[in-house]
Design a protein around this nucleic acid. Structure first.
Length: 508
RNA sequence: GGCGCGUUGGUCAAUCGGCUAAGACGCCUCCCUUUCACGGAGGAAUGACGGGUUCGACUCCCGUACGUGCUACCA
């Protein structure tokens, strides 16, 4: 086991976005490839955003994907606790240490005062004034207040936050595994809050403290975190942990297929595709957001889709097994730019994965969808059906869509397509063919042979009766070979469907 | 507005100075199949723009444009 340790650190505020799953995947692949440890840490420092069930939902998603963490709140290692809310007592000391070393300070400004500051300094050219090196001299903080007054305020239990004191005129530079060298001017970064008035750390403090304490060696997160990276880099340094700082990689964003901006769950609902890994029902609003699992995606296909959304191995390979991904993945080959999500290609992947399954596996996968229609098919029959229709199936629910006629008599048939050129000869043909049923073995080949024989008898061609037969049996112009279907559904059912269609066509 | 990051066909993308610019999805045509799908063969479609550097630039540098992210006591 190497010393590589990575972590996925979601905040349990809702469903797990496909971008989040990709971050998990990349963490997982990196850990496996390097024989390291994959940690799941719950970032629940904002109690206002706590959502019932969201944490469990994350576990369920990871389980469905097969991306099980080596250490997590459910399976603690030696670096627990793994929920930040349970680590609350750890952070204050570090924040205080930063104040004492002069890299942070107490700020007593109330939300109202901050609000006032922002509106006071707001101008056309500076629409969002920041609490930065120029503003901090005008606020109520331990940098400006006399020491005894600060002490009095503290002793009186006045609410305060601790802010980082951004240095002046420095350039913070670091090497991102994907982007290479990235640098920031500290004059342009504000004094971020490190410890909130409720005693909880903000992300900025927590991520540094926890990554250090959990001995994280490589930190991967979305590109949206890049602007606050200098704060984290500085914190690692100020806390005296510089040489232990993880290597960073900021992953490109996943964007909307149309329009602009990053992909949100709303886009999925609007464009008709899932954005979350699994269905998520918000307990507060009751709103349900659709997931890939319920849409009928296979977890391995889903993961393959995400793996190549921003990464490729430099060859023409499109389909990768988990073992291949582990072997080939490298952060350096992750694309820098954001990628628009393409649902059509996602479906193509799922179709590919479906084709690679055995009929037995497909039957097991399709069974719940068939059962949901009130059909209790036996496994052997289901397997044969699966083998016959799988090329036509892209998503799991397609097994019913494409194969329902194997289980139930079609409720309605496209009669017009038969009636068009219907005549007594054809009627005689079908009756004659049905009469031959008792004299043949019920198989694809025998059915086809007797069908051809009857065609000769009545002077008909395939084009005259093959399509009508299909419609009689399946209801429309789709499905696998007609004789395969007849062979499967049996003699009585075949006769029943033909007779019913003849009656219907003759009557109208 | 400021700052960061990015920019190869409609989409995902290869290319690490030699390109007549791969491949995949999607689209179109044809073949196979008297259904649909699968499969096969073709096709249309790409380096944002302007300057450098270089024998040579999609590849390196600079600028511009555009896109995107951040700019909370949210993550």
């Amino acid at each position: 086991m190497s010393n590589v340790r990575v972590r996925f650190a979601p905040s349990p505020t809702g469903g797990l976005h496909l971008g989040g799953v990709r971050t998990v995947l990349y963490n997982y692949l990196f850990a496996r490839k390097h024989g390291g440890t994959f940690v799941l840490r719950i970032e629940d420092t904002d109690q206002n955003r706590y959502v019932e069930g969201a944490e469990q939902y994350i576990y369920d998603c990871l389980e469905w994907c097969g991306l099980t963490p080596d250490e997590s709140p459910l399976n603690p290692g030696q670096y627990g606790p793994y929920r930040q809310s349970e680590r609350k007592h750890l952070y204050h000391g570090y924040a205080k240490q930063l104040v004492e070393s002069g890299h942070a300070y107490y700020a007593f400004d109330t939300p109202e005062e901050l609000e006032a500051m922002r509106s006071r300094h707001k101008t056309e050219s500076n629409p969002t004034p920041q609490y930065d090196r120029t503003i901090r001299t005008k606020m109520r903080n331990s940098l400006n207040l006399p020491p005894d007054e600060v002490k009095a305020l503290l002793d009186a239990g006045t609410p305060y936050v601790i802010r980082i004191k951004m240095p002046e005129g420095e350039t913070v530079t670091f090497i991102d595994m994907i982007r290479g060298e990235v640098s920031f001017d500290t004059n342009l970064v504000d004094d971020k809050v490190l410890l909130k008035a409720d005693g909880m750390p903000t992300y900025h403090l927590a991520v540094v403290v926890d990554d250090y304490l959990m001995k994280i060696t490589h930190a991967f997160r979305g590109e949206e975190w890049l602007p606050s990276a200098p704060v984290h880099i500085l914190l690692w340094d100020y806390l005296g942990w510089g040489k232990h700082m993880p290597q960073w990689a900021h992953l490109p964003l996943i964007l909307k297929p149309d329009g602009h901006g990053k992909l949100s769950k709303r886009d999925g609902e609007r464009l008709g595709f899932p954005v979350f890994a699994m269905n998520w029902k918000d307990p507060r609003t009751g709103d349900e957001t659709h997931g890939f699992r319920e849409r009928g995606f296979l977890p391995d296909a889903f993961l393959n889709i995400l793996a190549v959304l921003g990464w490729n191995d430099g060859t023409e390979q499109e389909i990768f097994s988990m073992d291949e991904l582990i072997e080939k993945f490298s952060m350096e080959r992750v694309h820098k730019g954001g990628a628009k999500f393409d649902f059509e290609k996602a479906k193509w992947y799922n179709h590919q994965y479906l084709q690679r399954k055995t009929d037995e596996e497909l039957a097991a996968l399709a069974k719940p969808y068939i059962a949901a229609q009130g059909v209790d098919a036996n496994d052997n029959y289901l397997q044969k059906v699966a083998g016959l229709i799988k090329e036509r199936c892209t998503l799991l629910p397609d097994f019913w869509e494409q194969g329902h006629f194997f289980f139930k008599t079609p409720e309605s048939i496209d009669g017009a397509a038969i009636k068009d050129k219907w005549n007594d000869t054809k009627k005689a043909f079908f009756e004659g063919w049905m009469n031959s049923f008792d004299n043949i073995s019920w198989s694809h080949d025998a059915l086809e042979a007797s069908f051809n024989e009857q065609m000769q008898v009545h002077g008909l061609k395939k084009g005259d009766v093959l399509l009508p037969l299909r419609i009689m049996l399946v209801g429309g112009k789709f499905g696998p070979g007609v004789f395969d279907i007849a062979a499967m559904i049996g003699k009585e059912e075949t006769k029943k469907r033909i007779n019913s269609a003849i009656t219907k066509v003759s009557a109208s």
